[in-house]
């Protein structure tokens, strides 16, 4: 046996060893984020926690399948799903027409509005005229990017890789405005020491075309998993698991109407 074939054999046996460990037939790989508290965040020891994480685990349990959480930065979320890095996205992803061209969605698992945040006392009129040259920060590849680029084309729109970076630049004064989910903004920013001196500006954003009809779980096109997960969402809504998780993080029922 030449050195080359020996090496190849070693590598092959090593990979099959790994494959045997992770690729159990009933493992459900859930794509999650980790910088979007309280929906998903990283604890000091590196483990993931948050509403999305708990929902993902509850759905796996409901479907009687082993759960594997796969972490992925936001702007690669859908590409990584299509590339089969995981089977479903449980990461506060809004159901929109544009995304439906790429993936299938389950029924919504929550619905919360989005709203702008600025320094207290900021007076900016939320119109195309009023936002001329105003620096607006949003997470890249979100419904929010769609909304601000459509409504405020004359603004100076800045795109970020994580929501935490958006808040950091808002605090540093590099941004005049930022737009995101109100619940995430309250718990992840306004109620933290970092968010002192900042407040909501304007009303909840109303834009079905960009913002979609709620937050769902995305799966690859044509995957029957969508219906299974939709049924599982209904089931945990009915058996109280959802409420239990909801109350752990929020004072109100975020499922919406």
């Amino acid at each position: 046996m030449s050195l080359k074939t020996k090496l190849l054999a070693t590598v092959l046996s090593a990979t099959s060893l790994f494959a045997g460990g992770t690729a159990m037939a009933d493992t459900l790989r859930m794509g999650v984020e980790g910088a979007y508290a309280p929906f998903s965040k990283k604890e000091a020891d590196g483990t993931l926690s948050g509403f999305d994480i708990d929902i993902a685990l509850a759905l796996c349990a409901e479907l009687n399948r082993e759960c594997e959480l796969v972490e992925q930065e936001w702007d690669g979320m859908i590409p990584a799903l299509i590339a089969n890095k995981y089977d479903a996205i449980v990461a506060s992803m809004s159901i929109t027409e544009d995304r439906k061209k790429k993936v299938d969605f389950t029924e919504k698992y929550y619905f919360t509005p989005s709203r702008f945040i600025a320094k207290e006392g900021t007076e900016i009129e939320l119109t195309q005229e009023g936002t001329k040259g105003v620096k607006i920060g949003v997470l890249r590849g979100t419904t929010l990017q769609c909304h601000v680029e459509k409504m405020y084309p004359d603004a100076d729109i800045k795109l970020y890789n994580t929501q935490e970076d958006v808040f950091a630049d808002l605090v540093a004064g590099r941004l005049d405005l930022q737009l995101n989910n109100t619940l995430q903004a309250i718990d992840g920013f306004l109620n933290t020491p970092q968010g002192e001196g900042f407040a909501f500006l304007g009303e909840d954003v109303d834009d079905i075309e960009c913002m979609g009809e709620g937050t769902g779980i995305a799966v690859r096109k044509g995957d029957p998993l969508a219906e299974e997960l939709s049924a599982a969402i209904k089931a945990i809504r009915a058996n109280g698991t959802y409420d239990e998780i909801n109350d752990k993080y929020f004072d109100i029922d975020i499922y919406g109407k």
Binding site: D75, P79, A83, K101, G137, G141, T142, D169
Partner: peptide, 20 residues
């Protein structure tokens, strides 16, 4: 946040939910 060459590429991917 700068829109350099890669920044534009990532903007396009982000705006239309593309991979490549």
């Amino acid at each position: 946040t700068l829109q350099d060459l890669l920044g534009v590429g990532r903007w396009l991917n982000g705006r239309y939910y593309l991979a490549y």
